[in-house]
Simulated assay, not measured.
Amino acid sequence: MIKLLMLGDSLVEWGNWSRHLPHVVVINRGIAGEMTEELSARLMDEIDDCPGPDAVLVQSGTNNLLMGYMFFPAIFSTMMQRLHACYPGVPLILCSLMPMPAAPSHEIEQVNRQLAEVAAATENCVFLDLVEPFFEQCLPITQPGFLADNVHLSTRGYQVWAGEIERCLQGLFPDSSRS
């Protein structure tokens, strides 16, 4: 089974990953309420605590965006380079922000463009764009992707995200066993 280190905020922390990604060993290192700069500050401790993951997924920035701090994608440039240096040869997955109703769509689009640029500039890094899958697979009334706070994910939102993670991992590890 693939060992996936997941770094991020409450969206990572509150995921029931054993249910949504049953064929992946998830090391859940999400911290609710955390800003991207706080994740960057603890990054080396996380690396020390988790030697040898097969892949690393990073999802952060939601709290920054909600607080009006639009410049956090710059933090990802050095953070992703540090991850690559510490885990050479390990695929990195940088997630986009999800199209949460609590934030203006033009701000999410702007940040996601910058995150995609960071991923493209980082060796062995994949940008996992979650916007389209959420728009396609989450219906506001019958299958909402977000809870009533318009920020945190519903069960459906986690299902969509996990499906995209699974597809990404299958692309990165086509020969891995899924049983």
Rank of each mutant, 00 (worst) to 15 (best):
L94H: 08
G8W: 04
L57V: 00
S176N: 05
L97H: 09
L169K: 00
V24L: 08
N63W: 07
E13P: 00
L172S: 03
R19D: 09
G145V: 15
P104Y: 11
V25F: 02
D49P: 05
V126H: 08
G8D: 07
G33K: 10
G171L: 02
A74D: 14
N28S: 03
R42N: 00
L139H: 15
D149H: 12
Y69S: 13
P88Q: 03
T62H: 12
V126T: 15
E136L: 14
G68Y: 04
H106Q: 14
C125R: 02
P91E: 00
H20S: 05
L57D: 00
I2Q: 03
H20T: 10
F72L: 13
I75W: 04
S179G: 04
D129Y: 10
G52Q: 10
I75A: 04
S154G: 08
I75P: 00
A32R: 15
S60G: 07
N16L: 00
N16C: 01
E132M: 13
G68M: 05
P22V: 11
A119F: 02
G61L: 10
P22W: 08
C138T: 14
E46V: 10
F134W: 06
A148N: 11
L115N: 02
L66F: 09
L66A: 14
F146P: 04
Q59T: 11
P140A: 14
E164Y: 05
R178E: 04
I31L: 09
L39Y: 03
N28F: 06
A162C: 09
M6I: 02
L5T: 06
L128V: 12
V131D: 13
E46Q: 04
Q143E: 13
E13D: 05
P140D: 10
F173H: 03
L147S: 07
L92R: 01
I141Q: 09
D149I: 14
V90F: 09
E117I: 10
L139Q: 14
C138E: 15
R178L: 11
F146T: 07
V25K: 02
F71I: 04
G68V: 05
Q143H: 12
L115W: 01
P73C: 03
V56W: 01
I27R: 05
E123N: 09
G171F: 02
G33I: 09
E34R: 14
L92T: 00
H20I: 11
A41K: 00
V151F: 03
E136M: 08
M100E: 10
R167I: 10
P53E: 06
A148C: 09
L7W: 02
A119H: 00
R113N: 00
M1N: 01
A102N: 09
V160W: 03
S77G: 10
L153M: 15
D49S: 14
E46D: 11
L83M: 08
D45P: 08
A85G: 00
S40E: 11
P140V: 13
I2K: 02
A116S: 06
V160S: 07
Q170I: 05
V24G: 06
G68K: 03
D45V: 08
K3T: 15
H84P: 01
V111I: 15
H84A: 12
Y87P: 03
F71A: 14
L4Q: 05
E37I: 13
N64F: 11
L130W: 07
N64P: 09
H20R: 07
A120R: 09
P22N: 07
Y158R: 08
A103E: 08
G8E: 07
A74G: 12
Q137I: 06
C50D: 11
T36V: 15
F76C: 10
T78C: 09
E117V: 12
